[in-house]
């Protein structure tokens, strides 16, 4: 088959996107279940264990419930924006999946077909991720505004302020990796971490501060505990999605978990070597499992933090972001620039 034909190429990319979206959405559905079970374990409860074997069909039961619920639209809401906000949130969350490299070049046995496990590669992949993520803010902010509810509005405003503040630290924490790798293409960033028998990860090569700053800002970017002020239920009922019900609420829910998944993938790709690990050079398919294993570690970390930490106060959140995290990210840039300039590590 001629892969250079643009139409076949586009068709294959659509196929790749279809598979990746479905796989990611399935993983996300089971992340929700895992969160409920792990949280229950941390809090000494049992959690959902009735639907299917040990609760394994619970995500589908939840989905059916969301579909069959009544979809309530508040009377004085701004209808069009109210309708479009969850779509913006989910679309922005899903759109970043296409640039992540899931694995190295895979060779299908008994044929001469081999292809890398990545949907598309381009020059500015990392900037694309940042751009699409920053557009996702509108989903939350507009949802809060259009609901015509003071709690929703407060939630939307808080989330806009929080996301703007932590986006800076997030973007700056990536500069260190970009300086060391010398490229914005995620696939070649991962390839450069293949040194030291698959352990030349950037976190082990001088990017530890960058990793910490990224991890904290990523948690804030995804509105998770301890940074979940936009939906602080003790103060704001449910924050920006107070008025949302049925499938529109499910879309916000999904967007949050897809965002968790994508920031975990970005952390894995940039700091933990992506699909690199011992033995990948001999058995390339191992790379996919390394990649997913690292991503699942981050997802577990998210749930663990939720079961452990209390929520920030809003002024603490702002002070922490602007007066601690941002200077730390700038310090990391200076250190990484020195490392890159003198070619240390």
């Amino acid at each position: 088959m001629n892969f250079d034909n643009p139409l076949i190429h586009a068709g294959l990319q659509f196929l790749g996107i279809f598979i990746a979206f479905n796989v990611v959405l399935m993983i996300v559905a089971y992340t929700v279940l895992a969160e409920r079970r792990v949280l229950a374990f941390i809090q000494g409860r049992v959690g959902p264990n009735r639907v299917g074997f040990g609760g394994s069909l619970q995500p589908f039961a939840d989905l059916l419930k969301f579909i069959f619920k009544e979809d309530i639209i508040p009377d004085k809401s701004t209808r069009f924006i109210y309708f479009i906000a969850p779509i913006i949130a989910t679309a922005a969350a899903l759109m970043t999946i296409i640039v992540y490299p899931f694995g190295p070049v895979i060779h299908i046995p008994f044929t001469d077909i081999s292809f890398p496990l990545v949907i598309t590669r381009f020059d500015v992949a990392l900037l694309y991720v940042l751009g699409v993520t920053s557009v996702g803010v509108y989903g939350i902010a507009l949802a809060g505004w259009s609901s015509n509810n003071k709690y929703s509005l407060m939630g939307g405003l808080r989330s806009a302020a929080q996301l703007i503040s932590y986006e800076l630290s997030l973007g700056l924490s990536l500069v260190g990796v970009i300086l060391q790798a010398g490229t914005l293409d995620l696939y070649s960033i991962v390839e450069q971490q293949g040194k030291w028998g698959g352990l030349g990860w950037f976190i082990l090569r001088g990017q530890f501060i960058g990793f910490i700053v990224y991890l904290i800002s990523a948690i804030a970017e995804t509105n998770r505990v301890p940074f979940d002020l936009p939906e602080a239920e003790t103060e704001l009922v449910a924050g920006f999605h107070t008025e949302y019900s049925a499938m529109k609420f499910a879309l916000f829910f999904m967007a949050e978990y897809v965002n968790m998944f994508t920031v975990s993938m970005l952390a894995t790709t940039l700091f933990l070597g992506g699909w690199n690990g011992p033995g990948v050079a001999q058995f390339p398919i191992l790379g996919l499992f390394y990649f997913l294993g690292k991503v699942f570690f981050f997802l577990f970390l998210y749930i663990w933090l939720r079961g452990t930490l209390p929520r920030f106060r809003f002024d603490q959140l702002m002070n922490f972001g602007w007066k601690f995290l941002l200077p730390l990210a700038i310090l990391n840039i200076i250190i990484s620039a020195t490392l890159a300039l003198f070619n240390i590590i």
Binding site: L127, V132, S134, V135, A141, W145, I164
Partner: peptide, 19 residues
């Protein structure tokens, strides 16, 4: 330029305007 356009204008400045 396209990526910067999205990050700076759509992602930062317009968020502030909406805010």
């Amino acid at each position: 330029i396209a990526a910067v356009q999205i990050i700076v204008y759509a992602g930062a400045i317009m968020v502030l305007v909406v805010f």
